[in-house]
Design a binder for these strands. Structure first.
Length: 176
DNA sequence: TGTACGGCACCGT
DNA sequence: ACGGTGCCGTACA
């Protein structure tokens, strides 16, 4: 079964939602279609392995758009995470509970899943998160610094955090 | 005292 | 072996 996708135009650019039964992939907004395709490639999605379709849930597109307008929205939708190992799922689960506009450290997450010394493994797991926003890994920071966001670049993490904190994105025209 | 940096332990994939 | 880390010791000011 091919991946169904829909493109979503947001204030920060073009993003993409991918699903089969449940939501599998979300690409953060990109300024150009070319960049979006590059991100798709990063997740191993080839050109002919997806088909465009109508959004899988009512209002999901509007909710995502509202997020990038600075609205305090909640994204609770069924996510396809079965393919991940248990530790990774537990990590995702703990991260999904972090409220909008707040942050926890990698260590905090490790403690929450009862493996207080696994903070580094938490970071590694989050590096594989295919569902930013739905699993808000940008809300997980290092104890002494912001930590990483290698897939989209640290600037993007800063952008999302400032969007949630101030309700606006100060440098949205130049931050990506 | 404060802080900046290096080294190493930790832990799942 | 490799990280989106944390912590402690040491070296300066």
């Amino acid at each position: 079964m091919v991946l169904s996708v829909c493109f979503i135009s947001t204030r920060l650019g073009l993003s993409l939602l991918g699903w089969r039964e449940k939501i599998e992939l979300f690409i953060l907004p990109q300024k150009t279609e070319e960049n979006l395709l590059a991100q798709l490639d990063r997740w191993g999605v080839k050109k002919d392995s997806f088909q465009e379709a109508l959004p899988p849930f009512p209002a999901i597109v509007e909710t995502i758009q509202a997020y990038f307008e600075g609205m305090r929205v909640t994204l609770s939708y069924p996510l396809a995470l079965e393919r991940f190992p248990l530790f990774t799922r537990r990590t995702f689960d703990a991260v999904a509970r972090i409220p909008y506009g707040t942050t926890l450290t990698y260590k905090d997450i490790a403690k929450k899943i009862a493996l207080p010394h696994a903070s580094r493994a938490v970071g590694r797991a989050l590096g594989r998160n295919p569902l930013p926003l739905f699993i808000p890994c940008h809300r997980v920071v290092g104890k002494y610094n912001l930590g990483g966001f290698s897939g989209y670049g640290l600037r993007y993490k800063i952008l999302l955090l400032s969007l949630e904190l101030s309700g606006s994105c100060p440098h949205s025209h130049c931050s990506l």
